[in-house]
Design a protein around this nucleic acid. Sequence first.
RNA 1: GCGCCCGUAACUCAACGGAUAGAGUGUUUGGCUUCGAACCAAAAAGUUGGGGGUUCAAAUCCCUCCGGGCGCGCCA
Length: 658
Amino acid sequence: MYHELEAAFREQLQKHIRQRYDVQIAVTTDRPPKIGMGELATPVCFELAKRLKRAPRQIAQEIANQLAPIKGVARVEVAGAGYLNAYFDRREFFASALMQAYGGAPKTASGGPKIVVEHTNINPNKAAHIGHLRNAALGDTFVRMLRFAGERVEVQNYIDNTGVQVADVVLGFLHLERKSAAEVRSLAAAPRFDYYCWDLYARVTTFLEEDKSRMALRGDTLKAIEHGTGGEAEIGEIVSDAIVHCHLRTMERLGISYDVLPRESEILHLKFWDSAFTQLKERGAIHLSTAGKTAGCWIMRMPGSGGEEDAATSDDDAKIIVRSNGTVTYVGKDIAYQLWKFGLLGKDFHYRAFDKSAGGETVWTTTSDAGDASAPAFGHAYRVYNVIDSRQSYLQNVVVAGLRALGFNEQADRSTHFSYEIVALTPRCAQEMGYELSAEDAGRSYVEVSGRRGLGVKADDLITKLEDAARKEVDQRHADTPEAVRMKIAHQIAIGALRYFLLRFARNTIIAFDFKDALSFEGETGPYSQYAVVRIRSIFQKMIDRGKELANGGAQPSREQIEHVFSRPGTDDLWELTLLAGSLGARVDSAIRSQEPAFVAKYAFELAQTFNNFYHKHHILSESDAARQLVLLALCGLVERQLVATLALLGIDAPAKM
RNA sequence: GCGCCCGUAACUCAACGGAUAGAGUGUUUGGCUUCGAACCAAAAAGUUGGGGGUUCAAAUCCCUCCGGGCGCGCCA
């Protein structure tokens, strides 16, 4: 509701200013600081004052007097030094919000342009850790937000199954554990194979560091895997496939799934790079360096470098795309992949079913053989979001520069690096987990997670820990509830706590992870909002127990009844809650515009908090005025609907009880 | 050296250039025989790292200094 009125107010004001003052001006609005000051405020008269050389308050008064009425807005007043504040028609808003929440069909995905969101992208050589969870939670919630707004979205999870990280684990199996492919296969079929590899990977890191000459093993292993030859490739395939399945199970616990898993092996085997390379050469986006330290490499000059400098210097600054030995770098492959996402490569993968999501949907992956002809069409995106941490922003810039150099400026403009900061551990947390820290690290405010060193909180461990903690709370309160139900509730609370924790911080804030904060179910947490929903449902249940009829799960007061309640003084708190509950669409819009899922998390908390406040002030079951009781119930119903919808965007379920 | 990010209450974090800088945690105090206390109320807590500037208006933009992080590889 809120954003419709906001848009109408802005539009009307802009039109009025253009007609009355012949000034074209962008009208910005925000929320007034206090409830009594209206619902929308604009400082536009300050800017107008400058252009017209008149006092802002005077202009504001003039506009307030002359502005044509806006549906849903009761009046417009001047405030402060020259603000224009709009006051909504509260009864109208209440009725509309209620109608929209109950009647409005959810937006269905249009057949319009497709948005590709790439997230998770965990190297398939070890268990997922807390840092990977932030990526997946951000990506998944952003996808849910886009779908809520009616967008058609495809979720991709890129699998680097032929990289150094997989090679290192393969190296470990071959040279540290001396295992055959058959032995690895049986290990991979056992539970917790991802944990096994987590430890092995850390051991390999030490093994390679102990004796630098062993690095040659890595090169050989990597080459064999890339070419798909020998026991190395076979074990590599076994490891990466098994680990990807582990990751899918882990993410499933968080309610996260994918449409397609493009793999690096197919980018290599289906010669995606060759197509990209040809295009890049033909369009002059890259050239062969003939001098300096990059001699023999194919390089791309980055915008901003070069300029007046001589060729040799600028070639040294340029990004190497193809090494002098003829092999392509990571960025090169990424450019090819990005071209494919937009349908610009002139090539496609073949696909095969890889897994099923919890909802029964097929999760597809790529294959270099004929594949399954019934696979849906992937790629061909209009817009692409790559959810990748901020350390890779340079490389993401190179990829976009590549598109631009090929002349795909529009696609470059629609390529977004959805950047976020990493999850680190507080030194205390790292020490609790038994890691020895250097004096330097112990003095820092956080230490970086390192899969290579085996330093990190494994995702499944954390989820299980949360489930156990939630289970204790549930057991205390609902000892008589069947165990299966208690387990489900504990799971929902655990995921509520975890996802909220991962999403509450702005993207560019480094999360210093601490068990104490992450395991909390009180204060600004997911369970706080879940609890508000449970309370509302409990009220409705009590009403039903008392034999009261409620139309399709909610109260439907008449206009007169709404009028009856809101016409009395002292209803600001009811109005505040109504207004907030009617602001979901506006909040999601703003979260999408700024690509900031934290706004949605914040909204869930605010709505729950405002409800709790209301809940303590107004006792509904004992309300003697029947009309008022009905209106309060309707308000509860509205909040419940909106809060459940908001939590769903965050990937959080509201339990039946807790 | 070059580029990007950060510095806000004791701690963890919010705040489209807008009105008296807000939450949570922790601390202190109070509230369950009334719809669920995983809750609520109240108090204490701030030179928004320092200094300049732009603006009607700066935590926010610009400059500078201080402190911290990350990136810049023929690794991925």
